[in-house]
Nucleic acid binder design. Structure first.
Lengths: 299, 299
DNA sequence: TTACTTTTTCAGATAATCTGAATTAAGAGA
DNA sequence: TCTCTTAATTCAGATTATCTGAAAAAGTAA
């Protein structure tokens, strides 16, 4: 079987037109090159060159040169592509995150990640925790950042930080006069607007409010709009409450056990792609700085 | 540099899922295969397989398998294409011939040639001797079969046979009563229709006729139609006069020096393609039989 | 755990490829 | 035609890459 390396030698000689210079270029002696050419011709069973000097190709030689040149180029491209993939210079990364993470935590990471890994195709999904888990489980996303899933399934959850809930209310709401932080007792008379995140709170005082609640919003923007218009108060993780409009206020809860745990969601089997691994590396490295910026408790 | 053969080993293992069977298929021992895989992973700098057993690929492994598989297929195809070309199972052959040769001599050759060389693309040009020479010289045709060119140029002419001229006239022409073969003297009173082939005749008796002639045709069909309608007589090489319509008669010339020499036209430099060489081989082999069929004098 | 299978490792064997010197061949100029 | 020069080939030995076979290690299944 003719080897690719032999064809590489042939193409070089065919292009340069003599063995001596081609041998130079290849870093071989002319005798080695000569023997390689002889071997190819023997394997093919027909001459590639016209006459003894290697400056005129036969028709077969011309055909072989063109075909082999293309093949060699393709091969070299493949090898560098494999290297690029292995060292996450190419590839795709699909992230699925809960909106607050997608909006606050991810952008500063992505900026740096894209600078360090140009050529990586990025896709960012925005969904509630349950859907994030689904996206990662189905393989649609390589990585998820969301609350702890109810059912573990084939997923692996790695806690990142605790995100304490805050009370959101209209700037005209009676709570505005309250001492901070807010105790459950101060909320007992309030109307709650339920939301996806707060529903995971498993405290009696919250349950009582939730049972009386008649409004629910899944989208943070509409939730805040409702609170702003005085329809009630709502509980949101701190990360979702940065950059609030002036029409609403946010207060800490006195009960510091009220928080959601946000973490990484990965498939257990089947490894991460190099790009995913690179993103995780970056995340781990930046964790401290990020958590400080957003005042989150690592865990 | 990762070798193609190493990738071949990897793809086999990746597809079969274990080293032992892959080694079997490759005709190697498991240890050789194991070492090759290790070498590739070292060269890439990242693992291709998940865990110790070789049945789960990493993302890099899957990427590499797919890319390498395509490359290997392409390479194998290339090698067999080179072999096919070398042994003239593929390629193109462009022939340029004078019409009589194209119509009589070539068809029986082509029939056999195409049967022996399936996959060869054939092209047949039909032109007068001067144009045939031009086509071969410019490289548009690989091979020409025509009369001896006036100017040799870079072309090489190899005589094949002598084709004697015959006299063509209407079935109602006075010559019909003449003794055969026809002497120049019998034609002295006739009107000549000139044609491309006969113009190469360099005999005084012909010159005299030619000077008085007012009609000329380049196309054999129209030439014969003119002769049939009694417009005059014409001189055509024997090979052009097989299968004449009933409306005309053909007679040999008494002067047996009157003939065109038909031969092969090749470019001197730059060798024939394998297909061209194969056609020449066939032609040389069949020459005897062909010349007998058409009663031609070899030379 | 034990029995079994698969993979890896290692040293030596084998095969492929390379080098350097000698030889042969080709082309240029007298 | 005969040299001179340069290029290419050949050959033997050296070098390197790759392979094998045995032993060790690492999994798997009962």
């Amino acid at each position: 079987m003719i080897k690719l390396e032999a064809l590489r030698v042939f193409v070089t000689v065919a292009e340069i037109g003599n063995i001596r210079d081609a041998a130079d270029r290849l870093g071989r002696t002319p005798s080695a090159v000569s023997m390689t050419l002889k071997q190819i011709e023997e394997l093919i069973g027909a001459p590639l060159f016209e006459g003894d000097r290697k400056n005129v190709l036969t028709a077969l030689g011309r055909f072989t040169r063109e075909a082999a040149r293309a093949q060699i180029q393709g091969y070299d491209k493949l090898i560098s592509k494999i290297h690029a993939y292995a060292h996450h210079r190419i590839g795709t990364l699909t992230l699925a995150c809960v909106p607050s993470v997608a909006a606050r935590l991810v952008p500063p990471l992505l900026e740096r990640f894209m600078a360090e890994n140009p050529g990586v195709q990025l896709e960012l999904f925005d969904a509630d925790s349950a859907r994030v888990a689904g996206l990662v489980e189905s393989g649609e996303a390589d990585l998820g950042i969301a609350g702890r899933p109810q059912v573990a399934g084939v997923l692996h959850f790695r806690p990142l930080f605790r995100d304490r809930f805050k009370v959101i209310c209209s700037a005209r709401h009676p709570l505005v006069d309250a001492e901070r932080p807010v105790a459950w007792s101060e909320l007992s008379g309030a109307t709650l607007i339920r939301n996806g995140a707060s529903e995971s709170i498993e405290v009696d005082a919250y349950r009582a409010l939730s049972e009386r609640a008649t409004l629910m919003a899944r989208n943070v923007t509409s939730l805040i709009a409702m609170a702003a218009s005085g329809l009630g108060v709502t509980l949101l993780p701190a990360l979702s409450t940065t950059d609030l409009p002036a029409s609403v206020r946010s207060y800490e809860l006195a009960d510091d056990g009220i928080a959601r745990t946000v973490g990484l969601l990965e498939r257990k089997e089947g490894s991460q792609s190099p790009v995913t691994a690179a993103f995780l590396d970056l995340l781990t490295g930046q964790k401290g700085a990020l958590f400080e910026t957003f005042q989150l408790e690592a865990c």
